[in-house]
């Protein structure tokens, strides 16, 4: 039997308020990227709260094996983001730490239920813009060719694959060319970059070569660790590739910065 009218499906209500977790790297080294992320959310009609008690997700200590220190800093974030509203993060790596590792980090700790609930509220910025807010962007910028660098943790911890590209494809004057080796790590890895400096250098040098092969003059990413690594290497070797956070790029083109 065929129904006379399609069933009524109502889209879930979009959250009207979100928290923004800026990340420690953005806070000190790339604040303009963080601000752009907050502005994008604001332009999408969401009220953005930036809790001043926030600092770092704890990943540096966790990845170095210092679990107690990581847990202490993570707990400070649990305290800084009370309630049940979504937490949006302009980094797949920090989001991955909070979403996929907090529950395990707090194993056997009285705060584990709180950590699990917190983890469920964490969203990577581009995925949130696309999947939760369904933003539409209007490009006001001049024609430009860009390539995308997904961070390993955005890809493989947060499962963010198509969302940032979907945002870029909305922009009429932006040509997105894909890097054949985009899924390969850039060699940052936090302390890896200094502990294994030679291997890291070989990796970032190969990454930059693969970016150059795309012919795009601009590399965009959603993670400032990768940008600091690839962009820092490009600058050191005198390569002109601009390395930018996607939030900054989108804000500049759609809302004039």
């Amino acid at each position: 039997m065929t129904a006379a009218t399609p069933p009524t499906v109502t889209a879930p209500a979009k959250p009207d308020t979100v928290y923004f977790f800026g990340t420690c790297l953005v806070d000190m080294l790339y604040p303009e990227a963080g601000l752009a992320g907050m502005d994008l959310l604001r332009h999408a009609g969401v009220r953005v709260i930036f809790p001043e008690g926030q600092s770092c997700c704890g990943q540096p200590a966790r990845n170095s094996g210092y679990m107690e220190e990581a847990r202490a800093v993570a707990r400070a974030q649990l305290d800084a983001f009370p309630g049940d509203i979504p937490i949006v993060v302009p980094s797949g790596s920090c989001a991955g730490m909070m979403k996929t590792h907090y529950p395990h980090l707090f194993e056997g700790d009285p705060d584990q239920p709180r950590a699990i609930a917190f983890a469920a509220r964490v969203h990577e910025l581009t995925a949130f813009l696309v999947n939760v807010l369904g933003v539409t962007l209007e490009d006001k910028g001049a024609p430009v060719t860009v390539t995308w660098h997904p961070s390993c943790h955005s890809l493989r911890e947060m499962g963010v694959v198509e969302e940032p590209k979907a945002l870029l494809r909305q922009l009429a004057n932006v040509t997105l060319v894909e890097n054949k080796r985009e899924r390969e790590c850039c060699g940052f890895g936090g302390t890896f970059a200094v502990r294994q400096a030679a291997v890291s250098t070989a990796m970032v040098s190969d990454k930059l070569a693969s970016v150059r092969e795309t012919g795009a003059g601009t590399l965009l990413s959603g993670d400032c660790g990768c940008l600091m690594n690839i962009g820092g290497h490009a600058e050191k070797v005198g390569d002109g590739t601009r390395c930018r956070h996607i939030a900054e790029f989108l804000m500049e083109r759609c809302h004039g910065g």
């Binding site: 990845n63 390993c152 943790h153 890809l155 493989r156 911890e157 899924r183 390969e184 790590c185 060699g187 940052f188 890895g189 936090g190 302390t191 890896f192 502990r195 294994q196 291997v199 890291s200 990796m203």
Partner: peptide
């Protein structure tokens, strides 16, 4: 164990 970026590949 430190000879890894934890890239998850």
């Amino acid at each position: 164990p430190h000879a890894s970026t934890l890239c998850n590949a």
